[in-house]
Write a protein that binds this DNA or RNA. Sequence first.
DNA 1: TTTATTATTGATAATCATTATCTACAACTA
DNA 2: TAGTTGTAGATAATGATTATCAATAATAAA
Lengths: 152, 152
Amino acid sequence: MIINNKIDPEFRYKKMLTKIRESGGRITSHRLALIRLLAASEGHPNATQLYEALRRQFPTISLATIYKTLALLKDEGEVLEIDLHNDSHYDGNKPYSHPHLICTHCNRIFDGDIISGIQNLNQEIEEKCNFQVSRHQLVFYGLCEECQQKVS
Amino acid sequence: MIINNKIDPEFRYKKMLTKIRESGGRITSHRLALIRLLAASEGHPNATQLYEALRRQFPTISLATIYKTLALLKDEGEVLEIDLHNDSHYDGNKPYSHPHLICTHCNRIFDGDIISGIQNLNQEIEEKCNFQVSRHQLVFYGLCEECQQKVS
DNA sequence: TTTATTATTGATAATCATTATCTACAACTA
DNA sequence: TAGTTGTAGATAATGATTATCAATAATAAA
Ligand SMILES: [Mn+2]
Ligand SMILES: [Mn+2]
Ligand SMILES: [Zn+2]
Ligand SMILES: [Zn+2]
């Protein structure tokens, strides 16, 4: 089910469709296409990027539909919103809290869920701060491997 | 210089004034008052909260002035912006990257810089992801000590 | 102290991502 | 196949933050 540090997009696709059906939602062609994109979440796209990607095949699709479907999936816990400065990006492949690495040079967003220290953090916070963590958004800014060479 | 897990506000106040002078900026009464607030940064206020706090003593102060001074101090590295969903909050007491704990019940923002695991994270990211970290924004959402009892 | 220079102010318009609104339409179901 | 109703697309509204600009005040020079 995990391929190349990524959950099988096909599995995620079906899971999202099921969740929508179970909540009484309808499956439209536009939703199908959007969910297919989100299931892979290549590059953690934002609403506009998803809109542009879908516009070719569906010229009549509306940006509002993107936002409404994203909100729906977020409510169902099937999409993670990465809240950046006036620009939300989305991960439908790993809809749970996990760290992200953002390159300040090429602006790409990488998954940082290989990092092992995260689990311990929650526990340390609960012990030292008496704070009960339910979710988190951890963002690290810097230079990705490729850009380190370009910039230096 | 560190009192009660907080940098001496007086020290921060003087440091910010020096930085503004050094960069050719002028010291106005409104800036003085705002910097005094930021140096303590009680509760990590946002622009509107700073505005409301200063309005009593300075009825003619403008929200634009708050934003412009915040941008100036941020450029000088003397204020940390905590970028939340369409609502930036500020820490002028600890202007460097550090974790924050946000209570989803009372909405208060706590400092989480007691946590020791952070230093190790950057190193782990550089090793495992080949990503060179320059700054971060780490936000943990959950229930503060007081609210855990109220909610349960 | 007086004057000249120019950064800063406050009022207000502009921006821009995201939401809300509303009617025609299409997805499900009996 | 028709009826019910959730959804789509167009567009207006929202709201935090920025940009604009003439009047003013902070600083330095005289
Ligand atoms: Mn991700
Ligand atoms: Mn802080
Ligand atoms: Zn890069
Ligand atoms: Zn609380």
